[in-house]
Nucleic acid binder design. Structure first.
Lengths: 198, 198
DNA sequence: CTACACAGTATCGACTCGAAACCATTTTTT
DNA sequence: AAAAAATGGTTTCGAGTCGATACTGTGTAG
């Protein structure tokens, strides 16, 4: 009878609540809701496959309709820019505007977290990361399926040379920084995504 | 330049989002918002010092006004019971009703989590718990100060005999199960709560 | 017994949120 | 090539969250 998983759940929930409050505080000056702040933070971490309303909605756990509303607001405030995709004119691409970046720089929504983890040894953090990452993977596989992850851990990720990368699924070349961002097409490495069992 | 803390933040956020979606799904049948489900779950974990609207609001990161609204709704639906405290007639005490318990049993809001952690070794989970717990403690100490924790780790916790416990702050006797619940008066063990530095 | 502190409630307005209908493009079918 | 289906986003609607503020009733200190 080990209660550890429950305790872990409780910690994640509680930290989630606190983070949410922190986002609320950070957005208060600009009259932004927590979810808006979260959206802006997401944009700093999204690559070319995940900077669309749809991906963002999936990441934040909202419907596309709701997402559309929030993006409208952020656009009105000049914190983001929306532009059309060249190839598929249905899709909208998103980008932080200069004042959006400025806002994040000023409000430091993640500052409290940085501060709270400052005294924890890198090793323990890495252990925690590893356990949570596995939880996340299973969670995503179970529930809905829309996975997110950074390119560098993806099965489609290919290394062309020392500093040139490529996404094998889309065929695009990727810069180093971009390979460290969040991708929507992420698939776990060693198989498991293509089993036929239903 | 270690990015681990950021990665950990991202994982906690993302898991928080998913948990939130899970709560939304669980409450959909009964027309409950995620925060309502969360409130019900909280009640299963709250001891005699934390089963009040105030403690709940602090835990969930809401204002007392907002909390009052949600509790009103849960009461109307018959999922919780509210009753007056004997000693201080200002305070309201909260308790899950039978149908509230039934609801949690049916909806299994934490089922997905249990499932997602099933293959992770207890040891790794304990490591993660330890790191996150420390983060939470620092976070709470920094930001606002209202701490939460289980009695068994509290500085006021006293063991009377093999199975009898006592809260040194309030002077009440505690049963074994209750000592494992969430308390609002929680204080970290080895000093640090009574330093004079401001 | 008069302040004041405190737990909780009521009211208000801005905003979130999912559901469903809708629009414009792309893709598939025929 | 025309018709149908799928897809990415937007609009509209109504229920409900949420913080701010004002308020009620109870306990407590002078």
């Amino acid at each position: 009878m080990d209660k550890s998983p429950e305790v872990l759940l409780e910690l994640v929930e509680r930290l989630g609540n606190l983070l949410r409050s922190e986002f609320r505080r950070a957005g208060a000056d600009e009259q932004l809701q927590p979810v808006h702040v979260h959206a802006l933070v997401y944009l700093t971490r999204a690559n070319r496959y995940s900077n669309t309303p749809q991906a963002m909605a999936a990441y934040l756990g909202l419907t596309k309709g709701t997402m559309s509303q929030s993006l409208l607001l952020l656009d009105r405030r000049g914190l983001i820019e929306r532009y059309q995709d060249d190839l598929d004119r249905r899709v909208v691409r998103l980008r932080l505007s200069t004042s959006g970046e400025q806002f994040l720089y000023d409000a430091q929504p993640q500052g409290a977290w940085q501060h709270a983890t400052r005294n924890i040894s890198p090793n323990r953090i890495r252990n925690a990361v590893s356990a949570l990452r596995e939880t996340l993977t299973t969670f995503q596989a179970d529930s809905e399926g829309q996975p997110f992850g950074t390119c560098s851990g993806c099965r489609h990720f290919e290394r062309l040379s020392a500093r040139a990368y490529r996404c094998g699924l889309m065929g695009d070349r990727l810069s180093g920084p971009e390979a460290r961002k969040i991708c929507w097409l992420y698939e776990e490495k060693g198989g498991g995504g293509e089993t036929d069992e239903e």
